[in-house]
Computed example of a mutant assay.
Amino acid sequence: MTTTTHDTQEREIGRGWFIALGVVLILTGVGALTFPLVATLSMEILVGSAMLAGGIVTLVHAFRTKEWSGFFWELILAAIYLVGGVVFLANPFGGVVALTLMLGVFFTAEGVARMILAFRVRPERAWGWVFASGAMSLLLGILVIAGMANGSSLVFIGLLVGINMIFAGASFIAFGNASGPLAAPNNA
């Protein structure tokens, strides 16, 4: 078998992996959309675990570098990470509420800032798109915050994860189905 034929076969096999990954991501995304609260809780547990791990690593690092002038502040950072991680893991629904509220506030603030930016650059041609984007962010933030009262916003993170996974999966399937040859790996 020649090197060219072997490379072509490897690329064709690679296409199948892209398509398989895309299908798995789409199915996972559909699962997240079907059970958005489960997806939201999974993300919250992931964030809590990451905070806890970050706190442990920061604490270990602080004691390994006790002589450093930032030792005290690193201990405070470790404590913040550890407490946040424990709170998120001990009370997952409380963590979901906190994350959702933070997202709502973020989208609201981003929307206002983007709309102000649009008015600041108003003579430019695309200022309307910037304003529309800001208005959508503001509306999204208001909807998330308003939905906190009845709990409907608690599935928001799971819905975002599901939508993201579906789009990511579709892009991998499209890449795997592309008509041209896949690029050879760069062995540089």
Rank of each mutant, 00 (worst) to 15 (best):
Y81F: 15
A53Y: 09
I26P: 15
A126C: 09
V86E: 13
A183D: 15
I19P: 11
V97W: 04
R120L: 07
I19L: 05
A184I: 11
G70E: 15
I56H: 02
V96N: 03
V144Q: 01
A62W: 11
R125M: 08
M165A: 07
G16H: 06
L46Y: 11
I45R: 11
G134W: 04
G48E: 04
S171T: 10
I76E: 13
G94L: 04
F119S: 03
I45G: 00
N186H: 13
F131E: 13
Y81V: 06
P123W: 02
G141Y: 14
S153K: 05
V87R: 07
M165W: 05
P36V: 03
W127M: 00
H6N: 08
L140N: 08
I173A: 02
G54C: 10
F106N: 05
V130R: 11
V97S: 03
L159S: 01
R120N: 08
L21T: 10
A132L: 14
V130A: 08
T40Y: 05
S69V: 12
A98L: 08
L25N: 07
I76T: 14
K66E: 13
T4E: 15
K66R: 15
G85S: 12
S69Y: 15
E12N: 09
W68Y: 10
T40E: 05
G94E: 11
A79D: 12
F88G: 03
A118M: 07
S179K: 15
R114F: 06
G134S: 12
A146G: 11
L27T: 14
V161F: 00
A149T: 13
A39T: 14
G94I: 06
T8F: 07
G111Y: 02
G134Y: 13
F175C: 01
A118W: 05
G141D: 14
V47Y: 07
S42P: 10
E10D: 07
F63Q: 07
L33W: 11
S133I: 08
